[in-house]
C-alpha cells in the first residue's frame, strides 16, 4: 500500500535533531553528502557511516523506520552493488566464461553499497525530523539571494509547500476512487498493458476533476485571507539559530576534518 512508504515522511518529535534549525539541517546535509563522496577509503567512509548512525540514534526515531526507507531503494543498492562486482580489477577469485569476479570488484561493490546506504540514511534524517513547512521555509531563506537574478523564490517555495501538503491527500483520494470503481466491477489487476491503462481512466478523470476543484478552492481561500505573494509577509514561526546549531556545526567540522585526514593517511579504495 502507498501508506507504507516511509521515505520522505515527517515524524514529529522533540529530539535535539528535531530542534536544529531547518536551514542548518539542509546545509549540513548537503555538506554531509559531499563528504560521503569525498571519503575515499574504508576508514573515512566508516567515519561518515558511524557518525550518521550516531545522529540517527539522537533523533530517537525507531531504526526500523530508516530500514524501511532504505527498502524503497534496495533495488538500486543491489543493482549498483552487483554491477560493481563485475567491473573490478585485481586478483581473479572466480571465473566463468566472460564473467570475472575479482577482489577489487568485491571491495568496490561493498564500498558503493555502504556509500548509498549512508546517503539514504542521512537524507532520511532531514525529512524525518523536519516538518514540510519548516523545510520549505528554510529553502526559501536559503535561496533568497537568488532573487537578485529574478528567480521567484517565494513562489517556488509556496508551490513546494502546497505540493508536499497535498501528496497524501491525493493518494488517499486515488485510493477512494479506485475502491469506488472496483465496486462497480473495474478490473485493475489483470490484462495486458493497454487494458490496464484503459482501466485507469475511470480513476484518473475523477482525480483530475477533484484536483482542479481543490486548486480553485485553495486559491479562493488564500485570496480571502489576503494572500498576495511574498512581499512584506511575516511568519508566525520564525526560524532561529541556537546553540544547538553551533554544536551541530562543530560536530560536522570535526567529522569532516577526520575524513580529510583519513583520506590523506590511508590508501584510496576506488579506482
Amino acid at each position: 500500500m502507498v501508506r507504507d512508504i516511509t521515505l520522505g515522511q515527517y515524524m514529529p518529535g522533540n529530539s535535539i535533531i528535531h530542534r536544529l534549525d531547518a536551514r542548518s539541517k539542509i546545509m549540513l546535509l548537503i555538506a554531509y553528502i559531499v563528504f560521503i563522496f569525498v571519503a575515499g577509503n574504508y576508514v573515512s567512509l566508516l567515519l561518515m557511516t558511524l557518525s550518521s548512525l550516531l545522529i540517527v540514534m539522537l533523533t530517537r526515531i525507531k531504526f526500523m523506520m530508516y530500514l524501511k526507507s532504505m527498502k524503497v531503494i534496495l533495488f538500486v543498492v543491489i543493482f549498483t552493488g552487483i554491477l560493481n562486482i563485475f567491473y573490478g580489477t585485481g586478483n581473479v577469485l572466480w571465473e566463468w566464461q566472460f564473467i570475472h569476479i575479482t577482489d577489487g570488484g568485491l571491495s568496490n561493490a561493498l564500498f558503493v553499497t555502504i556509500r548509498i546506504a549512508t546517503l539514504v540514511m542521512v537524507s532520511s534524517i532531514l525529512t524525518f525530523t523536519t516538518s514540510p513547512s519548516d523545510l520549505t521555509d528554510a529553502l526559501e531563506k536559503i535561496m533568497k539571494p537568488l532573487t537578485v537574478f529574478h528567480v521567484k523564490v517565494h513562489e517556488i517555495a509556496m508551490m513546494m509547500t502546497i505540493a508536499l501538503r497535498f501528496i497524501p491527500v491525493l493518494l488517499e483520494e486515488a485510493d477512494k476512487i479506485m475502491n469506488a470503481q472496483k465496486a462497480r466491477g473495474a478490473d485493475m489487476e489483470s490484462g495486458g498493458v493497454i487494458k490496464r491503462i484503459k482501466a485507469l481512466i475511470p480513476v484518473l478523470i475523477p482525480l483530475f476533476v477533484s484536483s482542479f476543484r481543490r486548486a480553485t478552492d485553495l486559491a479562493m481561500a488564500m485570496e480571502c485571507r489576503c494572500y498576495n505573494g511574498g512581499n512584506g509577509r511575516t511568519r508566525m514561526k520564525q526560524l532561529k539559530f541556537t546553540v544547538v546549531d553551533l554544536v551541530g556545526l562543530l560536530f560536522c567540522i570535526v567529522i569532516f576534518t577526520g575524513v580529510i585526514l583519513c583520506n590523506i593517511y590511508f590508501k584510496s579504495v576506488m579506482i
Binding site: E173, N179, I205, P206
Partner: peptide
C-alpha cells in the same frame, strides 16, 4: 462485488 453493490460516501466524485 457484482452481487453486493456498494454506493460510497460522496459517490458523486467517482463520475467520469
Amino acid at each position: 462485488r457484482f452481487k453486493v453493490g456498494m454506493v460510497f460516501q460522496y459517490p458523486e466524485y467517482q463520475l467520469f
